[in-house]
Write a protein that binds this DNA or RNA. Structure first.
Length: 115
DNA sequence: ATTCTGACAGCAA
DNA sequence: TTTGCTGCCAGAA
């Protein structure tokens, strides 16, 4: 196959790969993933990638990705605005006012955990 | 081609 | 501490 735009596709694929590696009951941030991928200032692209992630066949635990404040900023992109929180609580996380409690402890940094 | 928006993050005030 | 602006990169209109 020749002549295809694999530019962003490659970036998106990497976002998915990392997201899939997030351990059960743990969470990370958009910026952390972006930085791990080498584009520290492309956190918004990570969010965009996750936005279209459900187009793929593979399940992407996008609910384990929140912003740097531990706030569920992407909850509006799931079926309902409560499903993201429910998924996280189901994994043992505690959420209050859309914010993950003990965020620092549950945080999983791909740049440190992976290599 | 140009403009606007977005599941963010960093910094100034 | 909170609010607002800017940078970043892709995609939609």
């Amino acid at each position: 196959m020749a002549g295809k735009k694999q530019g962003s596709n490659d970036f998106f694929s990497r976002v998915y790969e990392v997201t899939i590696l997030i351990p059960y009951g743990r969470i990370t941030s958009y910026g952390a993933i972006a930085r791990y991928l080498g584009s520290a200032r492309s956190a918004r692209m990570v969010g965009w990638a996750l936005n279209v992630s459900h187009s793929g066949e593979k399940f992407i635990p996008a609910h384990r990705v929140v912003n740097r404040n531990g706030i569920l900023t992407g909850k509006h992109h799931f079926g309902t605005i409560t499903i993201m929180q429910q998924l996280l609580e189901n994994e043992g996380l505690v959420i209050e006012d859309d914010k993950i409690q003990n965020f620092r402890e549950k945080f999983w940094d791909p740049s440190k955990e992976l290599r």
